[in-house]
Design a protein around this nucleic acid. Structure first.
Lengths: 239, 239
DNA sequence: TCAAAAGTGTTATGATTACACCCATGA
DNA sequence: TCATGGGTGTAATCATAACACTTTTGA
């Protein structure tokens, strides 16, 4: 007899090709109009029908947990090659009401320009919420989300990961606004410019903004090659 | 019919009061004679009999994962109220040869003066290894261990956790040696003193070392109360 | 009196901060 | 010509690093 279990998100039956008692939940960050946002999905069925939660799912028996997170992210957003890192495992005994389930939290940073929500990609509705307007979420998802924000704050100071939230080509002020929003502190424009340019991690694209009603700013992109070379030589990004 | 499964460490049968497919593995750090050390246990049975691995075990169905790690740590070392933090989950599909098992890594910092290995506490032999003389370990335990060292290096700069590896009363030079060993870099004694004392996180115990064949140093202890008050006020430990 | 570690003082350098100011451009 | 953001200059302050030096103590 083949064992069956209920999908925590959709309430649908899952085959036993997935692991029992372990799920993955993913905090997907986006950045638009100076605001940090998070993608939430609406529960299709079950007791918590209509409530918002983090996108997630089960881990297949033959896939690693990172692979599972990548797969789930692709299933939800249609995107690949996204910045994705594990947060940690969350495992309070009563976190999931329909049985003992431990979840592994991940967070992803996506460039909203590339991303276009495809209706029907998932069974559920997916909507962006501003970071300061997050509703009450199912299970322990608020806890996971809060942890992810703290983690993002720590990581953004240790490594140049913020770029993943911006378009390929960006201006220094966009980058500064991103840092201000993530860290929640105002910054000084001249000082920010010098500090960042001084790290030599940005490539001057010799291009300018278009269609802006003020002096057009230079466009830059992140120089991942140089960054890798520098870190190999012992360079440590710090902000 | 009650389900049975094999204990990954001892090869013994476990009752179904524990979760299947999820374990906990713990990296226990100690510090002695200027060297960072890790406690490893010898496998009692199974294919990998005689090989060294991280202490670990199963999670009970009605306990949280942090609780499980605390319980396992106590079962192994007899110690309670130990500094313990989760690393992350490790879940490559083939990491555990006897089936698909995901493990949650933890790391603990213990004061070796308080700790005394009690033979018989565990089924297996437990021995301290210097950090630069770690043997090949079972499963993916070397990966977990390497991650834990990186994590310790990051964390020790962000928060005053190093004290957990020292005796209650310590000298500034002991503290500096600890930082040097963890971070792997030499430091300047006068500068270290000033920097640390300047943070006002140490209580001068008005006591001195005894039985040393040179000028006796002042003893200090970490002022956890002040640290908490300062962090509440927005203070950020940085090293 | 020597070795070994405790502990203080001082200077140079570089990063950070705070702020004043000019520039370019479209409405 | 005004608003808006782009971009440069500079002086004060602070943290860090480097290293010379004195002190204490037991062997």
């Amino acid at each position: 007899m083949k064992k069956k279990l209920i999908n925590q998100e959709t309430g649908e039956l899952e085959s036993s090709s997935v692991m029992k008692s372990i799920t993955i939940d993913c905090v997907i960050f986006g950045f638009q109009n100076g605001s940090l946002e998070i993608l939430l999905v609406k529960h299709g069925r079950g007791i918590r029908k209509g409530d918002w939660g983090l996108p997630g799912g089960w881990i297949k028996k033959n896939e690693g947990i990172d692979e599972a997170a990548i797969r789930l992210l692709k299933e939800l957003t249609g995107l690949q090659n996204i910045f994705l890192e594990q947060l940690k495992a969350f495992g309070k005994p009563d976190r999931f009401p329909m049985g003992r389930v431990i979840t592994i939290g991940y967070y992803a940073l996506i460039n909203k320009e590339k991303y276009n929500i495809k209706a029907g990609f998932t069974a559920s509705e997916a909507v962006w919420f501003k970071i300061d307007k997050i509703p009450g979420l199912i299970y322990d998802h608020n806890e996971i989300l809060n942890f992810s924000i703290q983690q993002l704050r720590r990581r953004v100071k240790q490594a140049p990961i913020g770029f993943n939230l911006l378009p390929e080509k960006f201006t220094l002020l966009q980058l500064m606004k991103l840092y201000e929003e993530i860290l929640g502190i105002p910054m000084d424009k001249p000082n920010f410019r010098r500090k960042f340019l001084g790290m030599k991690l940005l490539i001057d694209l010799k291009e300018k903004q278009k269609d802006v009603s003020h002096r057009a700013a230079k466009l830059y992109r992140f120089d991942n090659n140089t960054y890798k070379k520098l870190t190999d030589k012992g360079f440590n990004f710090e902000f």
